[in-house]
Structure formats: C-alpha cells, structure tokens
Design a protein around this nucleic acid. Structure first.
Length: 860
RNA sequence: GCGAGCGUGGUGGAAUCGGUAGACACGCCAGACUUAAAAUCUGUUGUCCGUAUGGACGUGGGGGUUCAAGUCCCCCCGCUCGCACCA
C-alpha cells in the first residue's frame, strides 16, 4: 500500500533534475488557480442574453478541516459548473458557510474562546483548503450565516413571516438538563441522561416559537410530483414524513369514566372495520390516562410506557402492553355493544387524537394486543366475500365486508364512505384528513444562533421588533463559564424598550434553529449584499437552483424546510411566484469509505489504527511501531472513531488536487459509496502523468496526415464523455477517457487535435492539468473558457457492424454486415455460416429471429 | 416490526430498450527496457476440462415467462439505508 510515494520524487527533485515528462502538480496547480482568480473567470454577472445555470452544493459547516467527503461533493458540483459553462451557460456557483450551531459553543466552553473567533478562524482555514481544490467558485457572493448582515436579514424575514401568520408561539415539551440548565436535542439524551452532565433529563414545558409548516402540508406533498429531477427515494421519504391520511374522527360515549370524560374522541383510517372493533385504546399521555393516575397502578403503568424508547423500531419490537381501565365505550352503531378501554404502549399522543379503536382482524398490532389480552377477533373484511377468520396474521388487503350489517357486501372504499356518512349524520364525528407533519419548533435556548427579533413588554405582551431596529446583534461580551444561555444572564443585552409603547421591555433570548439559516441561503446568494433579504431582479434572474448536490442525510428536514421557506418567501414577497420549488434538480452523492484496521488490547477490545500507522507486510499490514499484525476490516464510511480517514490536504500535497478529483469520481457511480484505496489514487496519478507525457510528446511531434480511426475515436469520446457528464455517470465518462487515451497512444497519424480535445474533455474533472496541456498544445486562451467539444454525428456511425449469431440462444458465431443490411441479407449470411450449417445438419431451422443491428438467433 | 434499496470475476464496477455478460480501473502473471531496481511500455487474466481447435459452467439460491433473462414474474437467503407504533 505504501510502496509507492510519488510525491517523494517530484518534491525532492523539483529544483534539480525533474524529468521534463514529469507533471508537477505542486507547482502547476497554484499557478492556474492564480490565473483563474486574476482573470475573474468564475465571477457571475447577470446577462439576459445567455441562459443561466445555478449550481449549488450544500454549503459546509466550517469545522476547520476539509474532509474527503467534501472533496467528492464539491468536485461533482464543480464538474457540473465547469461543464455547463463550457456548454455556453452563464453559470452561477457560489459558496458560503453554515456557521451557527453547537460545535462553536462547545469549543468556546472547552477552550475559553468566543464562538465567533473560533468560527471565523475555521472559515479562513477551510477557505484556504477549498482554494487548493481548484473549484470554479464565485467567492464574491460568499457569506457565513453568522455574519450579522445575513442573520439581520433573516430577522427581517422572520418579522414578515410573523405578520403573515406563519410564525406563532405555543407550549411544547423539551428535554431539559437540570445541571447544564439547557435544552437537549434528542441525540444528546442517552439512556435518559444528559450527554455532558449525566444528569437525569426532565420533561419541561416551554413557550416556544413555531413556523406553521403544517399550513403547507398538502401542498408540500402534492408538489413532490412536480420534482421530476429529484431522486425517487427522497420524494418517497418526504411523502412518508408528511404522512397524509384520510379517516374518520368520532366520539365514543363512555361508561364509568371520571367527570369531564363523557366522550372519548378517536381517529381511524379504517372506519369500514368498525364492526370488528373489540377494544378502545388510549396513549399513556392521553388526558384520560393522566386523569386516572390517582390509581397507583395506572401511574406505574403510564410511567413504564413513557420509559420505553421512543423510536419506532424500539416500540415495534417491544411487547404490546395494555392496562384495562375498567371504563367502557359504547359502539356508535349499536348501543348494546360495549368495548373495554385500555391504556396501551403502542399509541402515540402526537398523532390523531391519541386514542383509537382496535380492530384485531385487520391490524397486526391490534391483533397481537387482542391475543395477549384474550379479546375477541372478528373478521369484517374477507378476501372472497365468504366466511373468513383470522388467526395470527391480520388481513390488511382489499376485500369485501362481512359481519358488518348494513355494510355487508361492500368493498372497503364504499364501506368507509358509508360508515363516515352515518357517523356524520348522527353528529358523532366527521371525516378528517390528518398529517403526520408537525409544526416546526425553531426556539433554541442558545447563544450562537440568530436572535429571534421580538421583545416582551409588561403592558403590550409579545411585540415584534421594528424593522428599522434590525439587526438585533448578538452581544460580543459573553462567556460560557456558567451553565445556561449566556444571553439570559447578560447584564444589559436583554434590556430594551418596547417598540409599541416605548416602555421598558426585555428581549427574547431564544435564538433560531440553525435549519432556519440553511433554509434560504440559496436565495440570499443571488443578492448577497442587498439590504433586504433578496432583491427580486436578482432572484428572478438566478433562481431556481438548477442543480443541487448534497448528501442524502438531508433528504427530509433541510429540504422540506427549504421548500417551506421558499413558499413563505413567495408569500412575503421575497421571491417571485415561480420559485415556490427552489431546487429544480437534486442529486445525492454517496459517501467515501475506507478499510478499517484494528488490533486487540489486553482485554480483547478493538483498538483502531489509521492507515499512516501501517506498513505493508506480505498480503496484509503491520504496525510500523511495534510490528504487530493488524486485522483488516470492511470498508466503511470514514469516521474519526474508526480512524479510517484519509486527509485530503495530505493527498493534495502528495499527488495534487487533480488526482484526488479524478479518483473520487473514477471508481464508483456518483450516487454510490466509493472506496478510497491508495492503489486507486496512485493509478489516477499515473494516468494523469501519462496524459502529460503524451502531451509533451505530441507538442514536439511533426506528423502529417489525418488518422481517420483517431478522428472517429475522438468523436466517439466526445459523445460518450458528454453523455456521462449529462447523466451523472462520471465514472463512465472517466472509463471513456481511459479508452480515448489508449486510442491516441496507438495512433501513428497527427494526434494534436485529438489531444487538445482530450484536454477540453478533462477540464471539468482535472482543470489544472487541462490548462497545462491546452497551453502546451497551443490552445487559445484558457481551457476553462474554451467551448466544450461537439461530436459530429456522421463520425459516430460505423459502416459495418459485428452481429452475434446465437444457436438456441447461445452465442456460437458472429458475422460482419453493413450497418443497414436488410433482414433478408442478414438471414442469408447467417444461414451460410459454417457453425449454423453444422448445427442444422442439413435440416431447416425451427425458427429464425433477426433483430436488425442487434442479433440473430437460430432455433434448431 | 414497517418502508426503501442493493446482491455481477481475486477487487471497485460496466452492460441506459429483454439481444455478444464482465467495458474501464485495481490486483495478479508474463514479456520489453535496465547491471539491477524503480518508473515506463506491451500482452495475458471469469471458473472448470482440453496441447489446441473447442466445450461445459457462470450475474446470492430455487422456480417460472421467452427464440433469448444480470435485466421481467413468484418464493427464499444475505447486506445496506430510513423510521415519529401514523391507527
């Protein structure tokens, strides 16, 4: 693995005897980066004469360290940007920083620095690392979401959304860490304890700000159909998340319930199965369940339910548990039927009404529950419409109603309609559409985020700040030596005057969820210096994002929030109407993986090792320090905990950015994970060296005469590489570039034109090498500004083609025929072939299939 | 548990419409160049039988449709991802 160290040679010998044929990326890459910068080739200007193309990669969190995953993500975006520019589009390719959030506060606590200092230092470092990649970015639109110019405009947006009724306050329960005095995210709660303090987490009710994303639930769902260039998977995930269901909400009359609970309201999507109901169930958090907690048994049962994990997986696998409350409900269609009411651990308070009726025959959970507690199981839908019973598997397919009196013989849809209209007629309930999607809680009790621009006034209540008082800036003089939100305990920052009455008032100290910051940055890029959130002229020209690229981990929240924000910005006049769906096309790239290396410590636990700690040892590796043999584990996503990380900066120093760019695109389809291997990276480096050697050779060559085969190969390469670029099949484009290289190497004719084409085809992937080759071959201007080659269709047609001949479906021979040979001609040629004559043995074929241009199959 | 996706040589992968399975790359092997090595170039390389011409087998396993299946259908196995018990 570490046999070859290419950079050792060029680095050491760069000033001495570097062979002319050695391409020195360490010198060349910064040279071209400077030229691009000086000639401002990536600066985008509005130009109505040309079609625009907005390429955007999800902007990074400024951790300070470029990760190899970034390299893959941003290389793909850069390829698209450079390719589209070469195709004549006016490309907009901006970059910025998703800079608010917890890591800066954690760093501030640990190192006693200001979150801003830490963040801006990271941005500076990361920007330098970005520069080394040679990306075609227009940095003139750069911003960080923690820039006051950005979050000030976000506050203006918030005020407009508040006015438009899209923001409101309500109570919500949070995970509260009583030691750190802070709200915890779900992932910060481990086994019911705070991740940092280890204290038992409490449930606490706080008044929080929400965005009314639920107003758009139906629209966000139905508009998914229009997102033709989004992955199906993401559309499906969003659809499931929004979770629309049509059902019936109705009230059971109760018997034996405490005062105030004369009725129990339930929601069901299967009103057709009402005659199969054998119990009613309520969540442990249902008001009725809480009202019964004076009974210690109920209190204990409810507490037990709340302790069970909250994830779907944990609950699905957990045993179904119920507590019979002794209360009965009366069947809405027959008052002589009474059903027991159970508190059950599989009912969610957050969905519907937190209460259900159970129909065991047609719902697996209800069936498991019924079997456990000995409840009746009556099938009311039958696949064939005849007598039918259910044992251990609930019947959830379509069928015909049975055992259901007035609904007998109906199909499910008519039965649903019938049951609903009867309930409605009896004034016991109504048909209702319910969404899973809940409103978006944006309040965070933290410092490093965008302050929510409202004040609390004793006499006027909650008052929005005036726009002319924006931005509400975060105070600089804060510290993290005490737990809690520094804004809360700041001596003066909270104190302000009420925008309405002018009296004394206190500022809101909650800041916004960082998902807010990333929900509109794509729009802000189009007018990054404006003193309004956007300007319509710029937004109208540059929006929408034509190609958005990022990881699938953002498939739901970020993308759904962004879609909501675009709607909110249209409503509040910050985006033109047609920008309601901001991302025309979405691409999710795969991860970068690497093998893992481990040894065992004295207790038999795994100890992980990074690739630089190893030396090759026969088939495997051993530790350089101790010589101990290491275990080679599977290739998994690079992670700090497993130490299977490759530092892109080291790679760039050794091989150059072009090699990394080429490699991350070469081996796997972009949407799949790619495995980083040293041998693969070396192979990429060798190939780029070969291209350079050929360029030098060809530049000095004085050959005459066109090699028609090479000309054809050139047009073939143009067509194939273009197809790969257009279809996000960059690995196939690279395969074609390898083939094209071999074709040029073989040619005995004039190879200059082919090699120039090669430079332009490679430019989107390996821009520095492409410039160097382009210049060496006498290309005019910069390769980055040259038009992308166009294939001549007449050069792509082969006059004769090879056609395989199958005998009984197995390939046995092939014939060479003219490309437009008729069916009859092909038949004649095929039947005259020795192999066919032999197979027929003098007889005639049973069947003869000729697919012109494709294949011949002789059945004997 | 539910939902989605995937499974092809020693390895990553290609085969876009049901029509030559294994493009391209890695690795391995052989040769050229070299005193030698590195670098570079050329060639071989799915497995098995055979000196060879050639043949058999082969896309996770089993069955099916078809002149023809990696591709379509059914059943099974394995892996990966998502999940808020969604009534």
């Amino acid at each position: 693995m570490f046999r070859l160290k290419p950079a050792d040679k060029p680095r050491k010998s760069a000033s001495r005897s570097l062979p002319v044929t050695r391409y020195n990326a360490q010198v060349t890459e910064p040279k071209w980066q400077a030229k691009w910068r000086d000639s401002e080739v990536f600066k985008a200007e509005r130009d109505v004469e040309r079609p625009k193309y907005y390429v955007l990669e999800m902007f990074p969190y400024p951790s300070g360290k470029l990760h190899i995953g970034h390299v893959r993500n941003y290389t793909m975006g850069d390829l698209v940007a450079r390719y589209k520019a070469a195709k004549g589009f006016n490309v907009f390719h901006p970059m910025g920083w998703d800079a608010f959030g917890m890591p800066a506060e954690n760093a501030a606590m640990k190192n006693n620095t200001h979150p801003g200092t830490w963040t801006y230092k990271n941005i500076a470092e990361m920007k330098e690392q970005f520069a080394a990649l040679g990306l075609s970015l227009d940095w003139s639109h750069e911003f960080a979401t923690c820039d006051v110019e950005y979050y000030g405009q976000q506050q203006a947006l918030f005020l407009d959304m508040l006015e438009a009724g899209l923001a409101y306050r309500k109570n919500a329960s949070v995970n509260w860490d009583p030691v750190d005095m802070t709200v915890l995210a779900n992932e910060q709660v481990i086994d019911g304890k705070g991740w940092r303090s280890g204290a038992e987490v409490e449930r606490k009710e706080l008044t929080q700000w929400f965005f009314k994303i639920s107003d758009y639930a139906d629209d966000l769902l139905s508009a998914l159909d229009g997102l033709k260039n989004w992955p199906d998977k993401v559309q499906l995930m969003q659809a499931n998340w929004i979770g629309k269901s049509k059902g019936l909400q109705f009230r059971f009359a109760t018997k034996g319930a405490p005062a105030g609970f004369d009725e129990l309201e339930v929601y069901t999507t299967r009103p057709d199965t009402l005659f199969g109901a054998s119990f009613a169930g309520i969540s442990a958090d249902h008001p009725l369940a809480k009202a019964l907690e004076s009974n210690p048994e109920v209190a204990a049962f409810n507490a037990e339910c709340r302790r069970t994990g909250t994830s779907a997986e944990a609950l699905e696998k957990a045993e179904k548990l119920g507590y019979d409350t002794g209360i009965k409900v009366v069947h809405p269609f027959d008052s002589s039927i009474e059903l027991p009411v159970y508190i059950a651990n599989f009912i969610l308070m957050d969905y519907g009404t937190g209460a259900i009726f159970g129909c065991p025959a047609h719902d697996q959970r209800d069936l498991d529950f019924a079997r456990k507690y000995g409840l009746e199981v009556t099938a009311v839908v039958s696949p064939e419409g005849n007598d039918f019973s259910v044992e251990t598997e609930a019947f959830t397919d379509t069928g015909t109603l049975i055992n259901s009196r007035f609904m007998d013989g109906m199909d499910i849809e008519s039965a649903k309609a019938e049951a609903t209209s009867r309930i409605e007629a009896a004034n016991m309930g109504e048909g209702k559409t319910v969404f899973r999607l809940r409103d978006w809680g944006i309040s965070r009790q933290r410092y490093w985020g965008c302050p929510i621009p409202v004040v609390h006034c004793e006499s006027c209540g909650v008052v929005p700040e005036k726009k002319e008082n924006l931005p509400i800036e975060l105070p600089e003089d804060i510290n993290f030596d005490k737990p809690g939100n520094p804004l809360d305990r700041h001596p003066t920052w909270r104190n302000t005057t009420c925008p309405k009455c002018g009296g004394e008032a206190l500022r809101e100290t909650d800041t916004m969820d960082t998902f807010v910051d990333s929900s509109w940055y794509y729009a802000r890029f189009t007018s990054s210096n404006a003193d309004t959130p956007t300007t319509l002229a710029d937004a109208d020209y540059w929006m929408n994002v034509d190609q958005y690229i990022g990881g699938v981990e953002h498939a739901i929240l970020h993308l759904l929030y962004s879609r909501f924000f675009a709607r909110a910005m249209v409503k509040t006049g910050h985006l033109p109407e047609r920008c309601i769906e901001p991302f025309n096309a979405l691409f999710n790239q795969g991860m970068v993986c690497h093998e893992t290396y481990s040894t065992k410590d004295e207790k038999g636990r795994d100890v992980w090792h990074s690739p630089d700690e190893l030396v090759a040892d026969g088939e495997g590796y051993k530790l350089r320090e101790t010589g101990e043999q290491v275990n080679v584990g599977p290739s998994i996503k690079m992670s700090k905990s497993k130490l299977n990380v490759i530092d892109p900066i080291e790679q760039i120093e050794q091989f150059g950015a072009d090699t990394s760019r080429w490699f991350v695109l070469s081996d796997s389809p972009p949407e799949r994970d790619v495995e980083w291997t040293t041998s693969g990276a070396e192979a990429s480096w060798k190939h780029l060296q070969r291209v350079w050697r050929m360029t030098v050779e060809i530049a000095d060559e004085n050959r005459e005469g066109e090699d028609i085969a090479l000309t054809k190969a050139t047009h073939r390469a143009i067509a194939d590489v273009t197809e790969g670029y257009e279809g996000f099949a960059f690995n196939k484009s690279i395969a074609k570039l390898y083939e094209f290289t071999a074709a040029i190497a073989k040619s005995k004719g004039d190879r200059r034109a082919a090699m120039r084409t090669m430079a332009l085809l490679m430019q989107p992937i390996t821009p520095h090498l492409a410039e160097e080759c382009w210049e060496k071959l006498g290309g005019e201007g910069l390769a980055v500004q040259a038009a992308f080659p166009e294939a001549n269709p007449t050069m792509l047609v082969e006059d004769t083609i090879t056609m395989p001949i199958q005998i009984n479906g197995k390939r046995r021979a092939e014939i060479s025929v003219s490309k437009d040979a008729s069916k009859e001609e092909v038949e004649k040629l095929a039947l005259a072939h020795d192999a066919v004559i032999k197979a027929l043995g003098g007889g005639t074929p049973k069947k003869l299939i000729v697919v012109p241009g494709r294949i011949v199959n002789v059945v004997v």
